[in-house]
Design a protein around this nucleic acid. Sequence first.
DNA 1: CGGAATCCAAGATGATACTG
DNA 2: CAGTATCATCTTGGATTCCG
Lengths: 121, 121
Amino acid sequence: MSDISLIDRKPDVLSEKCPSRRVLNHVTSRWGVLVLIALQDGTHRFSNLRRRIGGVSERMLAQTLRVLEEDGFIQRTAYPVVPPHVEYDLTPLGQTVAEKVHALAACIEDNLGQILATQDA
Amino acid sequence: MSDISLIDRKPDVLSEKCPSRRVLNHVTSRWGVLVLIALQDGTHRFSNLRRRIGGVSERMLAQTLRVLEEDGFIQRTAYPVVPPHVEYDLTPLGQTVAEKVHALAACIEDNLGQILATQDA
DNA sequence: CGGAATCCAAGATGATACTG
DNA sequence: CAGTATCATCTTGGATTCCG
């Protein structure tokens, strides 16, 4: 007797236990979304990213970068010099995901007028 | 002297004060993503949705539905009968957004194998 | 059935100070 | 520069109870 959860044929975010949901949460986290978008135009250093993403704290930026690196979306490159020099890039997979995230954000930006009007009504 | 923040020419999620970021947070919230995906195949009732989205509590489902309705992504229709009968649908704008969200989720589901392998390494 | 209200636990986030 | 450690806070989320 086969157990579908063991075979795990097809990931499904609607299923409570599916690991895809955890990854999705990383990507759609408050700062994860913005980091992916900010990295779309190429390599960035830590403080550069921090300036680019309005309102993010050092702590949350570092944490978000670490999580997204663990998932394989971000490539971290540290040059052993002083003062430290660390660069962040999207991996190929990261670029794919970033495109989707960016499309979503753009969609919201494009319709923001309508959305805000709806809320007022 | 023009104030760009007042003119608000172009919404930008990377800007701390931009209202688009608030909306983006609603859409990418833990349950918001899943509600939008679950509603893609048409009308659903409350308890139906609750069963479909693994792990969501009544409280969070109700709250998420309300927020997404306020943003104009979801249409709520209550029939004045007893017992109560309430239906939820995506609005046209909601469908647009749901497509982007679904594309993102599908992208993660498709690459889940690679992602999990990366994490183990 | 479809919620709203309350209470409480857990996790996310931030400010600050410190370090290699 | 690029973080980490610590502590305080603020938000999220869940369980339960009650209601039209």
